[in-house]
Nucleic acid binder design. Structure first.
Length: 162
DNA sequence: GCCAACGTTGGC
DNA sequence: GCCAACGTTGGC
């Protein structure tokens, strides 16, 4: 039977994904065809494994702007594909080129992210001011992961802020 | 530009 | 497998 349902029937999970707005902002993603962009450039094994093992089509995404004048949550998105090899790892012209990645066994993956809407920016300071979000991964000291899980409760609380 | 935190690399 | 050196991230 044909279906547009996600590949499994598990409930959606939620994620926060960091993007430098100079490279791909929420506006860039919304301007892309189908509002969808390939999430290139993940070069951390833990983040890769989240994509490969835990993220599924339909999962919710907090689109986070990092390394910019106003870091924070800038929009809502969804996971829009399964993983596939990230072509930039094989492109010597790309800043994400990885000469150690074997072409027959690509080390790095990406998936598509579909932007759903832009939100008023929720700054780090605003996030930190919400007691219910105190345990959020992205707010923990020294956190550098570009993809982090978001709990159901954190997701629901953030949606009340946007 | 600073610097704390963390991941990766590579010699042993 | 240890661990020091190094590179990167990312807020400030």
């Amino acid at each position: 039977m044909a279906s547009t349902a996600p590949p499994t029937d598990r409930p959606p999970r939620y994620w926060l994904m960091k993007s430098e707005p100079d490279e791909c902002s929420i506006d860039d993603a919304l301007a892309a065809p189908q509002h969808t962009v390939p999430w290139t450039g993940v070069r951390n094994y833990q983040a890769r494994n989240f994509m490969r093992d835990d993220m599924q089509v339909g999962d919710g995404v907090l689109f986070y702007h990092s390394s910019c004048p106003e870091p924070g949550i800038a929009g809502i998105a969804r996971v829009a594909s399964a993983t596939r090899p990230d072509p930039t790892q094989f492109d010597p012209e790309s800043p994400y080129f990885d000469p150690k990645s074997p072409t027959d066994r690509p080390r790095w993956l990406l998936l598509d992210v579909q932007a759903l809407r832009k939100t008023p920016l929720i700054s780090l300071a605003e996030l930190r001011a919400v007691p219910a979000l105190a345990e959020m991964r992205v707010l923990q000291r020294g956190n550098r992961l570009s993809i982090t899980p978001v709990t159901d409760a954190e997701w629901a609380r953030i949606l009340t802020l946007v």
